[in-house]
Design a protein around this nucleic acid. Structure first.
Lengths: 193, 193
DNA sequence: TTAATTAAGGAACGATTGTTCCAATAAATG
DNA sequence: CATTTATTGGAACAATCGTTCCTTAATTAA
């Protein structure tokens, strides 16, 4: 009866993630989207609704694609400290040689929009909560196994490490000198000794 | 010979700090500035130049008004751990009951602009460096006095604490629940024991 | 073929962006 | 007084913003 969609909605959404991740919400214009997604203005608005709707779809896509992968690492880990170390190193490697560090799409969005857009703030916070739960459970297991010290409360430690991740995303934008980042990583991890 | 300025340039600049601090650079429009500063459009451009110039003046003003005060605290401290604790508590108190946490003007600017504006990136980084030096020296003194452990390198520790400050600014925007923030503070400080 | 749907291109919308400029008024000094 | 500067308000600028809509072409299925 009718023509099929010529483009892969998910594929285009990934391009939107890339654009919003790099430039943020306000600085990414409708024209930037038309150019970057390779869609006509009409198809864009027909398929994804307005700019904000597309942004929220992109943000959720990022969460499922990137953030959830890290959460899974904590859910399946055999060694929490090792996993935390791996995640810190991933964050550093992603941006430490970049001219314009992208940081984390969710952290960027938290600073840009969570103060003014309650729906987006909810997404941000639920992500934070998911991380807290996953890391707390992983830490508890590690403490039971005697892999890490039991001096500190697991929940408090989880919150501490999330704060470390957040901080690293900002530190990288302030100065992505690998030596500085390595220092932060080493000291932050030593809390588990 | 001629009329005097009717408004205090510094006073107006402080209002600009407030506006840019709260809303960021891109979201603060020229009209917002006219309304918020209580100046006519013409006086505004006559006195401060264009929007970006005004923003940079406001950013530098913030640094000298707020950031430098904290740096001085570290330069004059008798007890580093106490001072770090005080600063962490100040950051928390500023925003933990706010509906829209403002965070730190410099951190906000780092995430919004340091990737795209080299001149602003320089201001951000020099501020970071000033903090690093002040905290490192304070930590070294504390180690010499035996007030804190000497296990860790002072410079690495300083970088770690700056990262903690940065993280806290983001954490507060993600969820400013005082319990979460207190956990972060307690665990972060325990590195000195 | 016909009908239905998708896509592209582009014109057009009103609103807002940052910025400039001009005319009028207010205050200070000579 | 006259002159100089400060300040205001508002008009106007071109550019861009997000968004809508219309026309035309392409593709699919009945």
């Amino acid at each position: 009866m009718a023509r099929n969609k010529a483009f892969d909605e998910i594929e285009v959404l990934d391009k939107a993630v890339e654009l919003f991740w790099t430039k943020g919400y306000n600085t990414t214009s409708a024209n930037d989207l038309v150019d970057g997604l390779g869609l006509s203005r009409s198809s864009l608005y027909d398929t994804y609704g307005d700019k904000r709707s597309l942004f929220i779809k992109a943000l959720k896509r990022y969460k499922h694609e990137f953030a959830d992968a890290v959460i899974t690492m904590f859910q399946e880990t055999e060694n929490v400290k090792e996993t935390i170390s791996t995640v810190l190193q991933l964050i550093i490697d992603q941006d430490c040689h970049a001219v314009n560090p992208k940081g984390c799409f969710i952290v960027n969005t938290a600073t840009e929009l969570s103060g003014t857009d309650p729906e987006i703030a909810t997404i941000i916070d639920s992500n934070r909560q998911d991380f807290e739960n996953a890391i707390e459970n992983a830490l508890k297991l590690g403490q039971q196994k005697g892999q890490i010290s039991s001096k500190q409360d697991a929940k408090a430690l989880a919150r501490y490490f999330i704060n470390t991740f957040f901080g690293l995303r900002v530190s990288i934008k302030a100065n992505n000198n690998p030596k500085i980042l390595k220092d932060i990583m080493t000291v932050s991890l030593s809390i588990l000794d």
